[in-house]
Amino acid sequence: MISFDLQKLKASERFGYWREVLCNVYVSLTPEPDDRFDFSGSVSDHDLNGIGVSKISSKKQIISRTPSGIRRDADAFYFLNLQTRGACGVVQLGQEQLTKQGEFVIVDSTEPFSLDYVSEDWEQYSFKIPKQMFDAHIGASRTALLKKVSAESAVGDIVINYLTSMARRAVQLDTNPDEIRKSMFDLIRLGLTEGEDGNPSRHCDMRSGLRQYILNFIELNFSDPTLNPAKAAAHFNISTRYLHKVLEEHELTFSQALLERRLQSCAEDLKRGRPRNISEVAFRWGFNDLSHFSRAFRRRYGTTPREYRRSEMEKSDF
């Protein structure tokens, strides 16, 4: 993760540095602020297995992608810009969109575009996706450009929630980036095709995407001792009954998937011998009942947590 915050610079130096930051993190861009003398902004950026995930905020300005900027860059990207505060007017290829909080559009770095941040205080999550990667997963189609996806629709809400969780936890997702990335593309495709007719597999795709999103939600939150099906269902704005229905095609139920993930992390801690207190291991990964933890662990690994740790530590001595 790299971060840039203009507040640490003198006011007279901020805007010049801002353009350098934008060009380094994104592509060659031309910003024009509403006020050069009262300017502030910040950018944080993390590479998630080839996809740049950034958080950007600033004051009112217009950021342009010009033909000269395009000529300076050798690589091509799509930018999925998710508005989390304020509003942005987007223009590309003769199309216009206004994105507000909880909405995103996609722009193409190989064509000129304009981003008019009309709010005095705005914030975005931006996903910098190599064009070749995007085309392989979504398809090389102009229809994806500037099609607005909004959290106001059922599918859009799921997609927006997933992308928001990804951006907030990008650093933590490095352990399993391929699966996270696949789910991201599946859900983006669902969001972009919402409302299209003549797609008989759409409902199946939707269920499959939501099922993976639920499993990823468990992956991100399994250490929370209060996590249960009702809490997960509330997060996705669906009923608990529907959550179970979505997962029933998968070989694990919600509770089984949650228990398995917690036990895996406990086993890893015990294998390393840290921390020494077994109850601390259990509580760290979401268990709040030691008897339940011991029984579940023995069913899963065929031995008690204490015996498992002793056996694993003895193996490491050889």
Rank of each mutant, 00 (worst) to 15 (best):
F113A: 05
A233C: 08
K147S: 13
A11F: 07
G41E: 01
E111T: 15
R309V: 00
P130K: 08
K231P: 03
S239D: 13
G89I: 14
T175M: 12
T175L: 12
W122P: 00
L243A: 06
L48M: 15
S3V: 03
S57H: 05
N277L: 02
E196V: 05
Y26S: 01
S291L: 03
K128N: 04
A296M: 10
F283G: 00
E314W: 00
G16T: 09
C23E: 12
S141P: 02
C23G: 14
T110S: 07
G139R: 07
V159T: 12
D116W: 04
T143Q: 14
E249R: 08
G94D: 09
R71I: 08
D178Y: 10
Q172M: 11
G198M: 09
S153R: 08
F79D: 01
R202F: 13
N237M: 11
R181Y: 14
S316T: 14
K315C: 03
Q172F: 15
S150V: 12
P130I: 04
L98V: 15
T253V: 04
S42N: 06
E248H: 12
V90S: 05
G102W: 02
G209P: 03
A267Q: 02
L115P: 00
K55M: 14
Q172W: 14
E179W: 14
N228C: 10
Q124N: 13
N237F: 04
R272C: 07
I278C: 00
V149D: 07
A257P: 00
T66V: 09
L290S: 13
N277T: 04
R14D: 09
Q101H: 13
A144T: 04
P305H: 04
N216T: 06
V155Y: 12
V25Q: 05
P275R: 07
R241E: 08
E120D: 15
F79T: 01
A151N: 07
V25M: 11
I238A: 11
S42Q: 09
Q264M: 00
P229W: 07
R261H: 05
A87T: 10
T226H: 13
H46V: 11
E32C: 09
K245G: 06
Y26I: 00
G209K: 02
Y117Q: 07
R298D: 03
F113H: 04
R211W: 06
K131Y: 01
E194M: 04
L243C: 04
F222S: 02
Q132C: 04
G50E: 08
T110D: 15
K148Y: 12
N49C: 10
R295Q: 11
D47Y: 11
D47F: 07
K128Y: 04
A232F: 08
S311E: 01
R72T: 15
I238D: 06
S42L: 14
E111Y: 13
L29I: 10
R306M: 03
L48N: 09
A76I: 00
I214D: 02
E96I: 10
A234P: 01
F222E: 03
D35S: 08
Y162D: 09
M313P: 00
P112N: 14
C266E: 02
E152D: 14
P33F: 02
H137V: 07
S153L: 13
I129W: 00
S208C: 09
L227C: 07
D73V: 05
T175Y: 12
S141V: 06
N49V: 06
A76P: 00
